[in-house]
């Protein structure tokens, strides 16, 4: 095991139950992710990409198996401990409904810092700085419904990295964006990865994104079918 191992899973299973019907989403996933990686989980719809991302991010609990984040077994954590782990160690970018509508771009970006208890002056400064780095400082005082979808996703990325998490998990971040905007967003995340060493893990089937990742994990029917480092 290398020193920079960030996430490790052991025999991860997830079964969704609706009444008496059981739908397996993951069927024993063993995986290791390392700091500084720019990784994508690919696979057709229903292959378990989002489910795996949710389990890795502590948003859901597995039916069996274990996830370790920086050596900590996540299944042993309480709801609030998991929340704290997400708050301090993980950044999230979702496909849609990413921003809080009553907060401005600046406030949305600083929201995670606010949850962490960072004092107002510092969180505003840090949020402004990251917005400037991502080239969206001019939207700081606008509300989410006053900016485009691509700009909203940039804000989501800014919020995901502002607190310096161990890893950013992004679930289909380009799914609702046009081609040009998608490429811009991908380049932005790539830049954060190379310049700041931010670790990214995507669940996606967007080929433009898949072409740019350094590691590609393919999932089919809840199992890893390939794991390719480029």
């Amino acid at each position: 095991m290398s020193d920079n191992r960030l996430i490790e899973t052991e025999g991860l299973h997830k079964v969704y139950r609706t009444g008496t019907v059981e739908t397996p989403a993951l069927r024993g996933v063993d995986l290791e992710l390392h700091s500084g990686e720019f990784t994508a989980i690919a696979g057709p719809s229903g292959s378990g990409k989002s489910t795996l991302l949710h389990l890795l991010g502590g948003l859901d609990r597995p039916t069996s198996g274990e996830t370790f984040l920086e050596g900590r077994a996540m299944s042993k954590l309480s709801k609030d401990e998991l929340a704290k782990l997400r708050l301090t160690r993980i950044g999230f970018v979702f496909q849609a409904y990413n921003l809080i509508p009553v907060l401005t771009v600046l406030e949305n970006t600083a929201f995670v810092l606010e949850l962490q208890g960072v004092v107002r002056a510092e969180r505003i400064e840090r949020a402004r700085k990251i917005l400037a780095e991502l080239g969206i400082e001019q939207y700081a005082d606008r509300y989410p419904n006053r900016i485009s979808g691509g700009e909203q996703q940039r804000v989501a990325v800014a919020r995901a990295v502002v607190a310096g998490p161990s890893i950013v998990l992004a679930d289909e971040p380009t799914a609702n964006l046009d081609s040009g905007t998608s490429l811009e967003l991908i380049d932005l995340m790539r830049r954060l990865n190379s310049e700041k060493g931010a670790t990214f893990l995507f669940a996606t089937h967007d080929s433009r994104l898949l072409d740019r990742v350094s590691r590609l994990i393919t999932l089919e029917d809840g199992r890893i079918t390939s794991d390719e480092t480029r």
Binding site: D80, A83, L87, F92, Y97, I100, L115
Partner: peptide, 16 residues
């Protein structure tokens, strides 16, 4: 519900 889900996802505690 969705907004609260987002806030919880980002790491807000139950008490928060």
């Amino acid at each position: 519900t969705r907004e609260l889900g987002l806030i919880i996802s980002l790491g807000a505690s139950q008490w928060r």
